[in-house]
Amino acid sequence: SEIVVAMYDFQATEAHDLRLERGQEYIILEKNDLHWWRARDKYGSEGYIPSNYVTGKK
């Protein structure tokens, strides 16, 4: 599975969105859409994140 790191904070506005915290790692579950990826955080929460807010883990 692909691990990404959040470059920016993202506040979830929709129920299906996942909040991003800058510097935290997330697991990508689905990339069915170019701009919104389904991800899981370290607490096990899942939701959609803006793909341009994250970068591949170095």
Rank of each mutant, 00 (worst) to 15 (best):
T55V: 13
T13W: 10
Y48E: 02
K57E: 09
H35D: 09
Q11R: 10
G47P: 00
A12D: 06
G47E: 01
K58C: 14
D41P: 00
S45Q: 15
E25K: 08
E46T: 08
A15V: 12
K58T: 14
G47C: 06
S45L: 12
V54Q: 01
G44M: 06
M7C: 15
G47N: 01
V4S: 02
P50V: 03
A39K: 01
N52A: 14
D41E: 02
S45W: 08
R40T: 04
R19G: 11
A39P: 00
K31S: 08
D9Q: 04
G56F: 14
G56W: 13
Y53Q: 05
Q11P: 14
I3F: 08
Y53V: 05
Y26D: 00
H16E: 12
E2Q: 11
G56Q: 14
R19Y: 07
Y48H: 05
A15L: 12
G44T: 02
V5E: 05
K57D: 10
E25Y: 11
R40M: 10
E46N: 03
I28A: 00
D9K: 04
F10P: 00
N52F: 10
A6G: 03
D33I: 06
G47M: 00
D33S: 12
L29T: 05
G44S: 04
P50W: 05
A15F: 10
A15D: 12
D9N: 10
N52L: 09
S45D: 13
L18A: 00
K57M: 11
R22L: 08
V4G: 03
Y26I: 02
D41R: 01
G23A: 04
K31V: 05
I3V: 13
L29E: 00
L34Y: 10
N52M: 11
G44C: 06
W37G: 00
L18D: 00
R38G: 02
I3A: 05
E2N: 10
Y26W: 01
A39E: 02
N52R: 12
K57V: 13
N32P: 14
L34Q: 13
L29S: 02
G56N: 13
E30F: 07
A39G: 05
E30T: 07
K57S: 11
K58N: 14
D9F: 05
S51P: 07
F10I: 05
I28W: 02
V4H: 04
E46Q: 06
S45C: 15
G23M: 05
K42L: 07
K31G: 03
E21Q: 10
Y8T: 06
W37S: 01
S1R: 14
K31M: 08
R40D: 01
V54A: 02
I28E: 01
T13K: 13
K31W: 06
D33W: 07
L18Q: 02
T13I: 14
E14L: 12
D17T: 15
R40I: 07
P50I: 03
R22I: 11
N32I: 13
L20H: 00
Y43C: 09
G56E: 15
N52C: 15
E14I: 08
D33H: 10
D17L: 15
G47W: 03
S45H: 15
K42C: 08
A15K: 12
I27W: 11
H16F: 11
T55G: 06
D41K: 02
L29A: 00
K42F: 07
T55H: 09
P50S: 04
R22E: 09
S51E: 04
E46V: 10
K57H: 10
G23H: 06
E25V: 09
G23V: 03
N32R: 12
K58H: 14
L18W: 03
N32E: 12
E46Y: 05
L34S: 13
F10R: 11
A12F: 04
K31L: 04
R19H: 11
L18F: 06
A6L: 03
N32L: 12
G56D: 14
L29N: 00
G47T: 04
E2L: 13
F10V: 05
A39I: 04
I27Q: 10
E2W: 15
E25N: 06
I28G: 00
H35Y: 14
S51I: 05
Y43T: 09
A6Q: 01
Y26N: 00
A6F: 04
